[in-house]
Amino acid sequence: MRPFEYVRAETRDDAHRADGRIIAGGTNLLDLMKLQVETPERLLDVTRLDMHEIDEAENSVRIGALVTNSDLAAHPLIRKRYPVLSRALLAGASGQLRNKATTGGNLMQRTRCPYFYDTTQPCNKRAPGTGCQAIGGVNRILAILGTSDHCIATHPSDMAVGMRTLDARVEIETADGDTKLLPLDEFYRLPGDTPERETALEPGDLIVAVHLPDPPAGAQAYRKVRDRSSYAFALVSMGAVVSVENGKIASAAMAFGGLGPRPWRDHDAESVLEGETPSRALFDKAADVLLADAKGQGENDFKIPLTRRVVAAVLSDLTGVSQ
């Protein structure tokens, strides 16, 4: 690990310094610092700040940025009203990691692309302009949607997929004291030709909370397909909320992990479902729209048919269609 200055933020103002890297749970950042993928000169420890509460407000729940993944997953309100989020959190990492990992930190975790992790390899995200070896290389776990010629990394979070399904918004406090509320598709940037810029955060910004609106009507599910049954990243994961009224799908929300550089959501694919009678053929049509622009990179070609099957399985479960 490279030397760094350790600064303990006692107030929010301390945390708005633009010249420091924020650390909370540290489960991903310290890992990357040991490998010298991350080499911050100054760490801002924000764990003493008052952002540990889950508050129920009218028509929303506000989750403090320092709420741990385990506390969030086990919270009675989340288990009861937002089970897709509890399930997504419980599908990620291990008991030890969930006890340390925070809500804000989970959003900010970095890709597990093997080239990003290997400092002897080129990587446009880690060392801009050096190229992407994952394209045409070892890319089994990498993205099929939202990629560019510069980067095909996936965002690894399960939690963020659950939150995207639920239309969560990230509350950001700027260095000037202003507040921004960004939906996750605005919070996360697509790689384009600047894959090193992953979020809309500006220097000095601090994530202070995540807001969940009232849950949409319908049944919720989270399905994660991975190489082993526990403690592994998703090859494909799917969060969904679907309501059926009078035999027709009244509303559907679907978000995906393992497919893109951010938790992936496609409203056009959801529109295919709405107002229709659930059937295997209908689910395939929705998958066609979702995957219209999907681009396999070789080793990860299997994700395209796998996603199709995950869509069919999850929607069948939620609508009672037998497969």
Binding site: Y6, I23, G26, T27, L30, D31, K34, L43, D45, S70, S94, G95, Q96, L97, N99, K100
Partner: peptide, 22 residues
């Protein structure tokens, strides 16, 4: 690197990986 759990200790009564903590 937080993958094996051999370093597990309790902090304020909760299990964590002590290798991924400063």
């Amino acid at each position: 690197h937080g993958q094996c759990g051999a370093c597990t200790v309790h902090v304020n009564g909760r299990r964590i990986n002590s290798c991924l903590a400063l």
